[in-house]
Structures are given as C-alpha cells and as structure tokens.
Design a protein around this nucleic acid. Structure first.
Lengths: 225, 225
DNA sequence: TCCTTGTTGTACCATTTGGTACATTGCGGA
DNA sequence: TCCGCAATGTACCAAATGGTACAACAAGGA
C-alpha cells in the first residue's frame, strides 16, 4: 500500500533503498491519515494523542503538522475520508437485476456487514456526535454524497410498490434511518450491550443471526399489508 | 429527590440559608455528580475537564477529589447512576392491564421519549463504547439490573402469543435490541444524521413522527403472520 | 555545479490539566 | 464549653500535550 523505504519506527539504520521524495510525500500523508483514524477512533478527539499518532506513523510528529496544520484539521480530514469511503461502498452494491425484496435484503445485509467491518468509522461518527456535529458542519459536500443513498432507496421503493410487494407509504429517509440505526447499533453499542446481555458480536454466528433479524425487521417494515 | 437548599445553577450569591454541614455533604456529592454527568456527556471522558466540572459546582475542585478519588472514579459513578435511573424508569411503566399490542406500543413510545429526554445518558453510553466498555466491566450489578427489561419483554411476548397477536419465534433480547437501537440512534446520531438529511429532531413534530415510525416498525416485527 | 524549494528530523517551549499539601472551619459529642 | 474530625478553601506542582523554531537534506531546474 505504501513505500516503506527508509522510514522505520525503531531508532533506524541510516538509509536503505531510495525512492524519489515526491513519491513519498503522498504516501506519508496517507500513512498519517490511517494512523489518525485508528487513534481518533480508539480515543475520541480529545483522548487521541498527537504523539501517539506520530508513533504509529513511519514519520514524525513534525510531518503531521506539515500536512495538516493542527489536530483539528487532521480530525476533519479523517472524518471526511471516512464518509467518502462508505459512499463508495454503497454505490458498489448492484441491485438492479434483483427483485425489490431480494434487492433490499441484499442491501441490508451488505450494510450490516460493512458497518461491522469498519468499527473505526462507527466510532468516528459517534465521536462527532458527542462533539455535537461541530466539525461535520464544515463539510457540506457530505450532504450530496449521502443523498445518493436516499435516491437508491426511493427507486427501490418505487419498484416494490409497482410489483405489489411493498406498501405505498414508505418514506425513504425513515427506511434509511431504520437500516442505519439497526446496523449501527450493533457496532456502536457492542461493548455495553454485549456486556449487559452477554452477547459476543465478534462471534461470526452471533453476527449472522443478528443480521438475519435486522433483515427480517426491515422486510416486515416495508412489506405490503 | 434532593435538597435544593442553597444550591443553584447560576453563579450564585455568596451563601443564603444555612443548613447543617452533614446535610450539605450528600447534597455536595450529588451536586458534583450532576455537573460531572453534564460535562462528561458534552466532552467525553478525556475531553471533560475536572476544572470545568468544579466550576459548574457550588463547591471546589478539592471536593471532587474528596468524594471521588480521581477522574476515573467520578466517571464510573456517573455511569452507574445513569444506568440505575433508566432502570427506574422501565419498572415505572405499567403495562399489565393493556392488550399485548397496546402494551408494546406504550413501552416503545415511552422508551423513545425517555431516551430523547436524556441525551446526556445517551452520550455517556456512547463514550463508554468508544472506551470499549472498559469501565462498565467494573459494574457487574448492572447485569441483573438490566435483565429486568428482558423479563418484561418475555412476559409480554408470551401474552401476545397466547392471544394470537404475536408470532411465536421472537427472541426477547433481539426485540429489546431493536427497540433500543431505533430509539438510541435518534439521539446518538442526531447531529450527523440531522445535518446530512436535514432533519431537526428537536422539533416536537419531527420527533413524534419518527416515534410513530419506530412503533410501526416494532409492531410489524412482532405481529403474527 | 549551484541554488531554490518542498520535505523532514531534533530539540524545545508554553500551557493545560489531573492531582495534592496544608491550613482552616465548624458541627456534634463528651 | 471544648476538642476531634469531617468537610472545605487556597495555592500550588509535575507531567502531559499541542504546537513550533530551526536547521538540514535532497531533487530538479538553470
């Protein structure tokens, strides 16, 4: 994913291979972003330590401030990239050749799996909500990004109404919210809920069973009559 | 619930009445707990400032360390009290004289309203999950506390199956999880979701409409056939 | 070859922050 | 009335933490 060249975490031997500096620049930036995602997700904005991020990087703290002028900007960059990645995922799921019911099933399953597979993303969003959305407001382009998800559902609902499998009065935003809520909660509250009710969501079987319940819940929500 | 005596939220005039010290002691502790809940909820564990909590209090930082030996213990006390309060609420909702469908409707509505009315509680739980449940593990009594919620649902399901209104294969933990997820998400993701999809959940009408969708979703989830 | 410019490492600083030393006050029991 | 101890206020500290000064290095154009 990245040129590991002459950077390493340990006190480091002088220098080994050698690539052009220009090439490393972007790689360094990405390297920082990945480390930052992990650290912000683990500890929240305030809990995250810039020094810790630097240590996870193949470069130094100096570089963090070189590419992202301060901690807040770095956090913002992480937030933006996280949302862009989930959008990319959504558009990848191909549903057009499936029946409405099967398409919705597939979409829900994919969403549940995606969220479960990206706990860092979930935590970043949780953290942003603790901060009362103060940063996301600076990223207005996310609105158009996410409205794609609604369009997708709107079309799907229309198809479902046409073939008689869905009821008519479904608001796609509510539907999206139901899907999001059920798949988000699985991950977001994994620790407290898992502890209190003794469910280990890391277990693949537990995950699959829960996913089926979510699918069931959504299908029952949209089905006609 | 508490002796309101000479405590108030505003900067407050020097000192007014005068109660016995002993009496004030418990009040001071409660006063600190309330301030801490608010601050931890607003900023998360790391983001919360002990000095800020002290400022919100009618007493000094010294007292925080007197009653709770350090920041972590204070956080733990807040977490514990939050859970105990939500338990108290659940047992208060009386459902026995209602039909299963109406009882479930009432329970869901009450849950949605309760969570919406206690955003600080929601944030505390979010924060605890960001911390990967490291503190809740030290409060094993919460397990028995919350298992009451499951018992309630189990009985309700049995009644519903008896009178033919509910399907037979409902797992009460899954049902509880659905209810929790849908009502939790409303509050937990209020800022990001609200911003992206332009929904203001503080608006009573928006809240009521969403609540009805959640009830609908749950009822469809349990209904027979 | 040399100089400009983007990139990077080292060492350091000022402030913030959790936490404490120490003195003081006043209630309640003897 | 007086003393012991719970309760509290003031002032302070050491460590952690976000951020920076400054120098140096490398690559590419002149």
């Amino acid at each position: 994913m990245r040129d590991p060249d002459n950077f390493s975490d340990t006190p480091a031997p002088p220098a080994r291979k050698r690539t052009t500096r220009a090439k490393n620049a972007e790689a360094t930036r990405q390297n920082i972003l990945e480390a930052a995602l992990s650290e912000f997700a683990r500890s929240g904005f305030s809990g995250a330590r810039v020094d810790t991020i630097a240590d996870m990087t193949q470069t130094s703290k100096r570089m963090i401030y070189y590419y992202f002028s301060n901690k807040e900007e770095l956090y913002l960059a992480v937030l933006e990239e996280s949302y862009k990645k989930i959008r990319a995922f959504e558009t990848e799921v191909s549903l057009d050749e499936l029946s409405p019911v099967n398409a919705l099933r597939k979409l829900v399953e994919a969403t549940v799996d995606y969220q479960a597979g990206h706990p860092d993303f979930i935590r970043i969003i949780m953290n942003e909500n603790i901060l009362q959305g103060s940063n996301i407001e600076r990223l207005p382009e996310l609105r158009s990004v996410n409205s794609g998800a609604i369009d997708l559902l709107r079309r799907l609902c229309a198809r479902g109404v046409d073939d008689g499998s869905f009821r008519e009065d479904i608001n796609p935003v509510d539907l999206h919210m139901n899907i999001s809520a059920l798949s988000f909660f699985n991950v977001s509250n994994r620790y407290t809920f898992g502890f209190i009710f003794d469910r280990n969501f890391s277990d693949p079987e537990v995950h699959a069973a829960r996913r089926e319940q979510i699918v069931e819940s959504i299908l029952r929500y949209v089905r006609a009559a």
